[in-house]
């Protein structure tokens, strides 16, 4: 389970998150949507402490961090180990082969042997439809391939929850569809996922929970079909209207 309690974060005096509470159940897929500047990405990045919240609590599995109190590096790494993150711009390591991108973190973070890590990497790359890409460098791969490699890299560390930060926003729609397909399969396998996205189809059809954010807070949360069909908050209504008009 992932639980965020009363989370606040400001950048240079501008509040970006104000007292956000969110609970994500094991094995569910949650979409975070909302207008830009709503704080979706910041909320996601606070969950693995890429951003340090000013106040509030983050709990993932058995690990809990209170932003107000001091926590050790060990606690920080323990929390991050529970999460895998996929970025809008993939952020693969350009100086390593695709295989090494997936192998090195396993060696460094899980202490796996090279053979073990390579075996796992090959398995994951095959699952992503990239079995033959191991020897390539990331820049020789298409955007959609790079994003699937990034997903494999994160999955290789066996995270409890996967955080996706606009994973298809930098991709052409049809390439994005390949990535969404992979994410859909992951969801079907029971992976806990939190997805910041503008893909309303994915949010509606794959996600169990829809969280609508605006101005640093959650304004509506619940069943995606219901919210999209009958939004109760005027901000949700205008946002959905704007997005679905496109």
């Amino acid at each position: 389970m992932v639980r965020v309690r009363d989370l606040s974060k400001a950048f240079g005096g501008n509040p970006v998150l104000e007292g956000v509470d969110l609970t994500v159940l094991e094995g569910t897929v949650t979409a975070l949507i909302g207008p830009s500047g709503a704080g979706k990405s910041t909320l996601l990045r606070c969950m693995n402490l890429l951003e340090r919240p000013d106040a509030g609590e983050i709990e993932i599995g058995s690990h809990r961090i209170d932003a107000r109190s001091r926590f050790s590096k060990r606690q920080l790494y323990a929390l991050r180990r529970e999460t895998g993150m996929v970025f809008q711009h993939f952020n693969l390591f350009p100086h390593m082969s695709v295989m090494r991108n997936v192998v090195l973190p396993q060696q460094r973070i899980l202490g796996r042997s090279k053979a073990e890590a390579e075996h796992r990497a090959q398995e994951l790359l095959a699952r992503m439809g990239l079995a033959d890409k191991g020897g390539q460098y990331p820049n020789k791969c298409s955007g959609g391939q790079q994003q699937r490699i990034a997903i494999a890299r994160a999955l290789a560390l066996e995270p409890r929850v996967m955080l996706f930060d606009e994973p298809t926003s930098a991709l052409d729609p049809e390439v994005g569809a390949e990535v969404l397909e992979v994410m859909k399969e992951l969801a079907a396998e029971g992976m806990t996922m939190i997805v910041v996205t503008h893909e309303m189809g994915f949010a509606r059809n794959v996600c169990e929970d829809l969280v609508v954010m605006a101005d640093g807070g959650i304004i509506e949360q619940g069943d995606p079909q219901r919210i999209m069909g009958d939004p109760s908050h005027p901000r949700t209504r205008s946002f959905l209207h704007a997005v679905l008009q496109r």
């Binding site: 693995n48 890429l50 590096k73 790494y77 991050r80 180990r81 999460t83 895998g84 993150m85 970025f87 711009h89 952020n91 693969l92 390591f93 973190p105 460094r108 973070i109 990034a150 890299r153 994160a154 560390l157």
Partner: peptide, 12 residues
């Protein structure tokens, strides 16, 4: 993004 990716993976 390189720093972020490394941190998010849990690298020291």
């Amino acid at each position: 993004g390189q720093f972020e990716a490394g941190r998010a993976l849990g690298m020291t």
